[in-house]
Amino acid sequence: MYDAGKILFGLLVLAGLTTLPVWYNVARGKAGPQPQLTVGTTEKQCVLPTAEMRAGHMALLDEWRTRVVRHGEHATRTSGGREVRMSLTNTCLGCHAQKDQFCDRCHDYAAVKLTCFECHVVPKRSK
């Protein structure tokens, strides 16, 4: 390889730059701020335990979507035994009424673009 030294140096600089936020937090000695979420409901239990929802809500929504759209199933049972309609707008946003303080905050924080609501309606609520 020609100019091996220069190339390796360049790659190292690139790796350093892309991981800069990590080094910044390490140097500061504490993690970055966490997003503050408004759950928006007094209901005790979501359709799955909170930890599972936090980690796997996207997989659950994906499964719901497949079942509703492709298999024509519209109702499901929660882990608590309740029967709910598999509907993002009606069931999920029915409890988490303030999408901007729930979905959006975390997704903005994680910089994960949310495309659900380009089609699914966010109901207007007077609050």
Binding site: R67, R70, H71, G72, E73, H74, A75, T76, R85
Partner: peptide, 14 residues
């Protein structure tokens, strides 16, 4: 993609 007959009801009064 023919779905297998599902055990889940489409909804009670579907």
């Amino acid at each position: 993609d023919a779905p297998t007959p599902s055990s889940q009801p489409a909804g009670a009064n579907a």
